[in-house]
């Protein structure tokens, strides 16, 4: 629920930058190692936006599986789902986590209040504070 609130805060911030409007959908990346359950996050989002101006908007979760790399053996493929190993099961070297830590707002679709018809794409990456992973 706390994470859904934080996502909501980021989205309201983006909507504010682009003029008033109603959120239709939000795409978020959720990594396997974040201990966030996509189904629960979608449910929490519904609760967060309920009764507000963005009620009925949806949260689309892009699931990012954990990937780990060993400097000697490469990708660790025989990892148990959800596990987070620090040493290579084959050679004992330290592993680097190369995926699965994501918890990012990727994309927002919204309808500006004073608008009808058509579609446009805006890229705010230039305004980013550079804190994407």
């Amino acid at each position: 629920m706390g994470i859904a609130l934080e996502i909501h805060r980021v989205c309201r911030d983006v909507v504010r930058q682009h003029g008033p409007g109603r959120i239709e959908s939000v795409r978020v990346a959720v990594g396997e190692l974040t201990a966030v359950e996509p189904e629960l996050l979608r449910f929490a989002w519904e609760a967060v936006v309920a009764d507000g101006p963005h009620a009925g908007s949806t949260l689309d979760v892009v699931w990012c599986p954990a990937t780990q790399l060993c400097s000697q053996c490469g990708d660790v493929k025989d990892r148990t789902a959800g596990s987070w190993l620090r040493i290579c099961p084959a050679c004992g070297r330290p592993l680097e986590v190369t995926g699965g830590d994501e918890l990012d707002v990727l994309e927002l679709r919204f309808t500006p209040d004073d608008d009808a018809g058509g579609a446009s794409a805006v890229d705010t990456q230039a305004h980013d504070r550079g804190d994407s992973p």
Partner: peptide
């Protein structure tokens, strides 16, 4: 019209700051 905005921000950025 629907606007599609590419965001790419950490969900917890405010909390992390």
């Amino acid at each position: 019209m629907t606007q599609v905005v590419t965001v790419r921000r950490r969900a917890l950025e405010a909390s992390e700051e």
